[in-house]
Structures are given as structure tokens and as C-alpha cells.
Design a protein around this nucleic acid. Structure first.
Length: 346
DNA sequence: CGGGTATA
DNA sequence: TATACCCGG
């Protein structure tokens, strides 16, 4: 779900074409992107793609073709997976599980009624990433030669860490949390090309990748990074979605400018969670991250990819082979190390 | 979501 | 050549 600061961010978002990101390293929140695939790559009644044994494969489908598109334009993706969630998040994770269980019930009811549109909506809300689904995604990336990092805790925090260090040009996610974790640049809608259907409506809108610069965001609103975090905490984060009572982005902005001191602000508002806001502030300012990673983009292993996607999960050999040809060509044009010999032409 | 094919 | 639509696993 993420921190609810869309209103603040939207005015400074700059639209660009996917090609803009050529040669740039983007630290992508893996869970964020996998959940998107899991929610959207479904049949009309909401059933996800599955192999012969009933294992869900929607996330692999999306990850495979999207990543190839990245490599084709020369983007260097690194996927960052969540580790152990912070203690502060436990209650929210339990709440989300309840929501999914309820959605499963409503999905069944909609199917019985024969309401496919409704069924699809609830099916999307049931999306859960199992351990084996995540393992498959990591295997696929490994075989594709794309680096991934296991974050010690929040993936968004680790991705922001890469961007802060300059190991990545930006973080990639639909959520804004990495900005609170200090990422200097966030890319949204990465890889979304052309027109997309709006949920529940028969309306199509042109969606392009957009860049949000942290410095510009702060400057535009005349706030510091700490003040941005406090605003996020007041309006609602994953750690306390309710935030403070009756405080939206506008009031939060006013509050941080008037009172400045976070503790004063937290005392003034009606805090609606058991999780202390000060703890959330500390987490955003100093999250667990690691420097134990290497970023290398390797030649894809076609055989292993075919074994995983075609043999294990019944992807069509034709489609996979076709895509692998594209991947190999793209790798050779953008990623292959030029040896000294080739460089000097002997 | 993204690829591919039908359709004009 | 551009857009609409269907299906993948």
C-alpha cells in the first residue's frame, strides 16, 4: 500500500519515455512489481495463470517479459527482495491477511452469482506471494543474468540505500516509501507502455514512466527530509495506516511548518495507532540495510530458463524461445563486456 | 501486463 | 500504420 503522499508528489513528477533510462541502474522493489503482476495478469474471472500442478505463474510471466523489455532498451535492473519485516509492521501484516481472507470469500460469492467483473476485483485483492513463488522469481532472475539482492528488512529501504550510494540511479516502485527512506530519485510506472485500462471503468489512459526527484519534492514544498517523513507518518504509512485523526496532506504540511519539532507535532495530533510515531520516524531515518551485494549483469542461460519456464511451468516453448532471442540480442548490444581485443579491433 | 493477431 | 481484442499457464 505504501505511504499516502501522492498529492504531494504528483506536482513534481516528470514523465519520460522508457528509453530515457538506457544505461541506468534501477533498484526495483521486487515485491512491489511481483504483486502488480500477480494482481493484473489474470483471466476475465480473476483466475491467475497456473501451471499443470496448479502453481501460480502470473508473476513469472510478468517478470520475464518486463525484464526483457528493460534489457532491450539498455536499462540495468537490480531487483531488491524484502527480508524480515520490521516488528512495527506485524499488526498491519495481520490486518492485510484478514483483508485477503475476506476478499477470498467475496470472490467465491461473486463467482457463484456469475458476476465476473466483481469476481476479478476481489480476486486481485486475494493476491499472495508464497515462498515458492518468490523462489521461482529469484531463480528466473539468476538464469536471466539479472542481479537481485535479499534485503535484511524492507526492500524499499535497501533500494533507497543503493540509490543513495550511487550504485543505482533511482529506485523503482509504485509506492513512495523509498523517498521517505531517502532515495534521491524514484521512478514509477517503469516499463508501462502506451494505454492502460482504468480499473472498474471502460476508460483508457496513456501511462508513461515518471521520475520524482527528492530534492525537488522537498524544495517545492519548502520542507526538509525529516519533515517529509513526519508528513508521511501523520497521513499514514504501512506501520500505522490510520496515521493521525483528521490529518491529510494539507494539514500535515501546515503542522510540520508551524511546529517543526516532530515530538511536539506528535503530541499535538490525535495519534490513532499502538505503534509510536517516533519509532516509525527512526525506522525511516535509519532502517536495516546491507552493503553485502555485487551488481553484475550476466549472459542469460537459455537452457535453464527453458527448463524452468517450459518444463516446470508449461510456458509455450515458442514464446519463450522467441523472447530469449530478443533477450540475447539485447544483452549483446547493451551489456556484453567489450574485451580489449574487440575494442582495438584484433 | 505484454505479445500477437485480427481488423480497418 | 494504428488501434482493438484475446490469451497466456
Amino acid at each position: 500500500m505504501g505511504v499516502k503522499i501522492k498529492e504531494l508528489v504528483e506536482p513534481v513528477a516528470k514523465e519520460v519515455d522508457l528509453e530515457f533510462f538506457a544505461k541506468k541502474v534501477i533498484a526495483i522493489d521486487a515485491y512491489n512489481i511481483l504483486y502488480q503482476f500477480l494482481a493484473t495478469i489474470r483471466q476475465k474471472d480473476g483466475t491467475p495463470l497456473m501451471d499443470a500442478q496448479g502453481n501460480i505463474t502470473s508473476h513469472l510471466n510478468g517478470l520475464f517479459y518486463r525484464t526483457i523489455n528493460f534489457v532491450e532498451v539498455g536499462i540495468k535492473p537490480v531487483y531488491v527482495f524484502d527480508g524480515k519485516p520490521p516488528e512495527l509492521k506485524q499488526k498491519e501484516l495481520e490486518r492485510r491477511l484478514q483483508v485477503k481472507v475476506q476478499a477470498e470469500q467475496k470472490y467465491k460469492e461473486a463467482i457463484e452469482r456469475g458476476d465476473l467483473e466483481e469476481a476479478r476485483v476481489y480476486a486481485q485483492q486475494t493476491s499472495r506471494l508464497s515462498t515458492s513463488m518468490v523462489e521461482d522469481a529469484k531463480l528466473l532472475l539468476q538464469y536471466m543474468g539479472i542481479p537481485y539482492i535479499n534485503a535484511p528488512s524492507e526492500g524499499e529501504a535497501q533500494a533507497a540505500h543503493l540509490a543513495k550510494k550511487g550504485d543505482a540511479w533511482a529506485t523503482g516502485s509504485q509506492d513512495f516509501d523509498s523517498l521517505l527512506f531517502g532515495s534521491p530519485r524514484l521512478v514509477r510506472n517503469l516499463g508501462v507502455t502506451g494505454k492502460r485500462k482504468l480499473p472498474r471503468k471502460d476508460v483508457y489512459v496513456e501511462v508513461k514512466p515518471e521520475i520524482i526527484e527528492l530534492e525537488q519534492l522537498l524544495k517545492t514544498h519548502g520542507i526538509t527530509h525529516e519533515q517529509l517523513i513526519v508528513i508521511g507518518i501523520l497521513v499514514g504509512t504501512d506501520y500505522a495506516p490510520e496515521g493521525a485523526k483528521d490529518i491529510g496532506v494539507k494539514k500535515a504540511l501546515k503542522l510540520v511548518k508551524e511546529l517543526r519539532d516532530p515530538d511536539k507535532i506528535f503530541k499535538t495530533v490525535e495519534w490513532q495507532s499502538d505503534v509510536p510515531p517516533q519509532e516509525i520516524l527512526k525506522l525511516f531515518q535509519n532502517p536495516p540495510v546491507t552493503d553485502n551485494y555485487t551488481l553484475t549483469w550476466r549472459q542469460p542461460d537459455k537452457e535453464k530458463i527453458i527448463s524452468l519456464l517450459v518444463d516446470k511451468h508449461q510456458f509455450s516453448l515458442d514464446r519463450v524461445t522467441n523472447a530469449l532471442d530478443r533477450l540475447e540480442k539485447a544483452y549483446n548490444t547493451h551489456f556484453r563486456q567489450q574485451s580489449l581485443e574487440t575494442w582495438f579491433g584484433f
